[in-house]
Amino acid sequence: MPKESDIIRADELTFEYITDESAAGGKAIDSVSFTVKRGSFTAIIGRNGSGKSTLAKNMNALLFPTGGKLWVDGYDTSNEEYLWDIRRCAAMVFQNPDNQLVSTIVEDDVAFGPENLGITPGKIRDRVDEALKDVGMYEFRKKAPHLLSGGQKQRIAIAGAMAMHPDCIIMDEPTAMLDPKGRSAVLNIAHKLHRRGMTIVLITHFMEEAATADDVIIMDGGHIVMKGTPEEVFSRADELRAINLDIPIAVRLAEHIRAAGIDLPKSIVTEDELADFILKRTETHDKGQ
């Protein structure tokens, strides 16, 4: 099968939780269409209950569409035959660092995925060592997970996903329960893997994390309300405020600066870009003087 350029493709995807209380049930995802390009870093943002986590679980065939279609690496996720191909291809990292590690020893936990895939022992060993080095946790390989910090556990979880040699890693709010140090460690690893060609889907409610993505998808009430590059999305600050999302610090500063009558391009959404702009402006000032 030729590799499609879109690793994930959703067409009118709908997911409805079946509950006894029909009122509380309803559609967690409602006719959503989008694509994730192979090798991209895509951030999916939304507040709690916006449907973003349900979407992540659909991408891993942990939940199956109740309407519409979802393809992962060309496999239709509603076809049970491809279940294991999909889960190997799109590995997942979950929110709670404690509740996703299976084994009492770090390296055995990382081996859990490859073991399930039926890989030979020697090759598993290579994959485990490689994955642990990738996330900078190799020296902790003999430790017990419960003695590690939240950020370290989350890095082990990423290594566990990497060891399955996936094409894509879906991270479902991996930083929500971490302190700032753990949060930046996990984000740095996500970016490092992305630079090496891994497709990353990062689900989060931290805008600052999304500002560094290639593509941003914003969800609210089960719908996609915005889609585009960070520049395109974050320049619509008022709409983001309307659905109660945070605005990245650079965008907020830029708003104030613009309000003071200074001409600041709309495309500036990260701190790096804003700093560059200010530096250039002040340098030309200095030269002018």
């Binding site: 942990l62 889960r87 190997r88 996703q100 299976v102 490859p114 895939l117 890989i119």
Partner: peptide, 22 residues
Amino acid sequence: DLAMAMEARCYRGGEGRTRMNS
């Protein structure tokens, strides 16, 4: 949470499973 995480990592019982440390 754990059941979901195990499924996501392709766990399907002992059938066809290998071990790193034999």
